[in-house]
Design a protein around this nucleic acid. Structure first.
Lengths: 193, 193
DNA sequence: CGGAAAATAGACAGACCGGTATATTTTATT
DNA sequence: AATAAAATATACCGGTCTGTCTATTTTCCG
């Protein structure tokens, strides 16, 4: 109710999540220490451990936040599509826009899977949860478009998306988005017949 | 008493490379310390630093060795294929065999890209070199099969392969190999017409 | 056998790590 | 203005990290 408070949730907490995400995304998780995050965020150490119980907790929280934001942005782009097929292909427009963006540094969810290899690790769990949510959305789009085997197709499409993301990062070349889109079109046409 | 085998290339060195590979592959690079590798390999620290100048050097050397072995094994499988198309699809048989193997723990090359994000990092360079060699081989197979746009097709196929590898690791499910193969068949058929 | 090369053990350095404890200051609400 | 909550600075802990040094032992080979 107070007009001065912009966010009910702590602003420091959000600052922490954002800078943590960008640092981890750019340099990897284990390569970046807590102190680096704190310095860049301009936050004291005790504030961090007041909001999160551990570094892995911070990582998982950042992944959940960015995952939700990403899905929300994607949903907006999907909703703008006028036909079911257009809505499905909008995912690949979104992909291209991301890979071509200046601050693209690979997918932090995929990196989390590589660095946290135990099934119980929170970052890995957060990553698989996000990818699953993404796949579910795509499957829904496939079903709404009346395509055959929507579950299989969704698995294939997300596989293509992540493959393109990886190679775009590895070779510093956003052109893989177009390759992925071409695959998607072929698969969709085959599933439409 | 000279025992059985005096290997010309240092046996300790090979031991080091093999155990390093398996440990890094299973747990990630920064998560595994030098001492762990040394203990598991049964090798003294000075022996390591006598053969390699740093941990990253050891990693890159292990990647080069395993990369060469992998390509050699793949080449054998390809050579067994009787038609050009069969030879191309043999790559996906190889993929399925790998993803289904008991000791599958994801692709250490892809993990290296995630952990070593600077363009000058040796592990990253070793990873991109291997993936490029793989892509070149596939492109040759596409060209020998008389397919259209072999370079584009090779990019797409390797993208599919790595996407499947990633998701098979993430969800502990080798079934993505079959999905990848289905995509490959569709792309190859489209490029054959 | 004997000497050179390879490998060993083990201590050690210097830095960095995640996380805690304490005491103080800022901020926000009433 | 009073008070409670949030955030701060700073010092510190035990542990781990890569890499080095020295001195000793094992192995290879002519």
């Amino acid at each position: 109710m107070s007009p001065t408070t912009p966010t009910p949730a702590s602003a420091k907490r959000e600052q922490l999540l954002d800078t943590a995400w960008s640092l981890f995304c750019r340099n990897g998780y284990r390569a970046v220490g807590i102190d680096t995050v704190l310095a860049e965020a301009g936050v004291a150490k005790m504030t961090l451990y007041n909001h999160f119980s551990s570094k892995e907790d911070l990582i998982a929280a950042a992944m959940e936040k960015k995952g939700a934001e990403t899905l929300a942005g994607l949903d907006r782009l999907i909703a703008a599509g006028r036909s079911p097929q257009k809505r499905l292909l909008a995912v690949f427009d979104w992909l291209a826009g991301w890979l071509e963006s200046d601050n693209f540094t690979g997918c932090a969810f995929l990196k989390a899977v590589g660095e946290y290899t135990a099934a119980g690790d929170k970052p890995r769990q957060a990553a698989t949860a996000f990818k699953q949510a993404m796949q579910d959305r795509i499957e829904t789009l496939c079903r709404e478009a009346g395509l055959k085997s929507p579950a299989l197709l969704a698995r294939q499409l997300i596989l293509v998306i992540d493959g393109a993301t990886l190679h775009a990062d590895m070779h510093a070349n956003p052109g893989y988005a177009a390759d992925a889109r071409a695959i998607a079109k072929a698969l969709i046409e085959a599933a439409a017949g």
